[in-house]
Write a protein that binds this DNA or RNA. Structure first.
Lengths: 143, 143
DNA sequence: CCGAACTAGATTGTGCACAACTAAGTTGTG
DNA sequence: CACAACTTAGTTGTGCACAATCTAGTTCGG
């Protein structure tokens, strides 16, 4: 295995795993009209009920260029509402609608279903998580 | 750690690592006007000189909907040429131009630089690769 | 030989990723 | 207070991902 092949395989492998994951999610989420990034945003809101756009971006690691249109789609779909903060008019609060809260129940099974598809034990997942976190940190610091 | 958090963290971790990787590549490739998927296509061509669109798609795991416009951009940039096969007029052969071959030399350092950014040993990389391959396979078969 | 089934590639439409920029609002300092 | 610096969201433009569809070309059965 040459150095050239080694690294490109690692990046490509991460790349393909990410696609395989989102494909698995897609199969479960599409019937509800959701994409994986939209699901991530809803996950964050199911925990907190209401978050600013900036807080959401920090949680799901997306910038406003991605988040703004995504939130518009969630709003059009009736899952969230946006409102300007009265305390600071720059801030936009994102809140779940009743419809968006109901999705929490409808999608309650998703995590277990994905875990089943992934077919890894809790311990394996933990190991993998640690390795991926370390790798991500190295890559970010080098940049 | 609840089941809900566990799985979404694994997917999100893979997701973020993939982004961190492409960001690292971007820094190296952008000065040459290339994106990471374009670099992958060139990697395949540097190995084989000439490939059909279908063969390329199989190698880099992209469908024609992604590959067609990507190849058009590589062609506009002068890195590749496309030509209809005479044997089978449905088939399009993609070939490196002299300019595209020259890029191979200009980007010779990239793999080592990325490996440096990633900061993982050969052995760690091997372990991670195996785990990711297994995970990807599980996810694909479940779909 | 003719037409159905199949194949290769391109196209269309939706959504995400991200850099660069803009607009509006807030804050801190002279 | 005035104004520069900063912050929050949104917008624009380019490129990738992918499902669905289309076109042109090939192959195979009758």
């Amino acid at each position: 295995m040459t150095a050239s092949v080694f690294d490109s395989q690692l990046c490509a492998a991460v790349y393909k795993t990410a696609h395989a994951f989102t494909a698995a999610y897609r199969r479960l989420l599409e019937p509800h009209g959701l994409t994986y990034p939209q699901y991530l945003v809803l996950l964050a809101l199911w925990e907190s009920k209401s978050l600013t756009v900036k807080q959401l971006g920090a949680k799901v690691d997306l910038d406003s260029g991605t988040l703004s249109p995504l939130l518009n789609r969630l709003e059009t779909a009736g899952h969230v509402m946006k409102s300007r903060s009265t305390a600071d008019a720059r801030v936009v609060e994102v809140t779940l609608t009743v419809c968006g809260q109901r999705l929490h129940d409808e999608l309650r099974e998703v995590p277990q279903q994905i875990a089943g598809c992934a077919g890894v034990s809790r311990a394996q997942a933990k190991t993998l998580l640690d390795e991926l976190h370390a790798l991500t940190e190295s890559l970010r610091q080098a940049n």
